[in-house]
């Protein structure tokens, strides 16, 4: 089971009230300069196909139960990665009347990639670290 997660990851990208910045950097990872598809990392269209849930943005009240449902729909085990400052700690949106707390109070987060926005290199480094951690577990 763990072996499958160390080869090629299928990623579902879920944006909860983002500013779009992390999201275009995630797409940038697929663009020719970084091109993570050569490692088998691919964006998929349905959470049911996903190994990894990539969540960006501060979670607001309209999105919060939808993101929970997305997580319920994924096949377990599924890893949740919080991308960007908003998902990790909500940065300045912690004072907002419409946000529901950082992502780890809503979903079990396995990995934090901080930054506003994190560079594509940082995201790739994060995913590699996740893979290495899983490989370590296997031994």
């Amino acid at each position: 089971m763990v072996n499958a997660f160390t080869q090629s990851l299928f990623v579902f990208h879920a944006a909860c009230s983002p500013c779009n910045n992390c999201d275009i950097e995630i797409l940038d990872m697929l663009a020719p300069r970084h091109d993570v598809e050569r490692f088998g990392i691919q964006l998929v269209g349905s959470p049911r196909h996903a190994d990894v849930l990539l969540v960006s943005g501060a979670v607001n009240k309209k999105v919060v139960h939808r993101i929970k449902r997305l997580y319920e729909q994924t096949a377990k085990p599924c890893f949740v990665i919080a991308v960007g400052g908003c998902a990790c700690s909500e940065i300045l949106f912690r004072d907002s009347y419409n946000t529901c707390g950082p992502l780890d109070t809503i979903l079990p987060v396995d990995m934090y990639i901080p930054g506003c926005p994190p560079k594509p290199e940082a995201m790739i480094a994060g995913i590699v670290k996740l893979m290495e951690k899983l490989k370590g577990k296997k031994k």
């Binding site: 009230s17 607001n60 939808r66 300045l92 949106f93 004072d95 907002s96 419409n98 946000t99």
Partner: peptide, 23 residues
């Protein structure tokens, strides 16, 4: 729409002008 609302106008009113630029 409304999946993206974060209350920026209200947040900005709680920040001083220098912070507002970043907000």
């Amino acid at each position: 729409i409304g999946y993206n609302h974060r209350g920026i106008e209200k947040l900005s009113e709680a920040k001083n002008f220098e912070q507002g630029v970043y907000a």
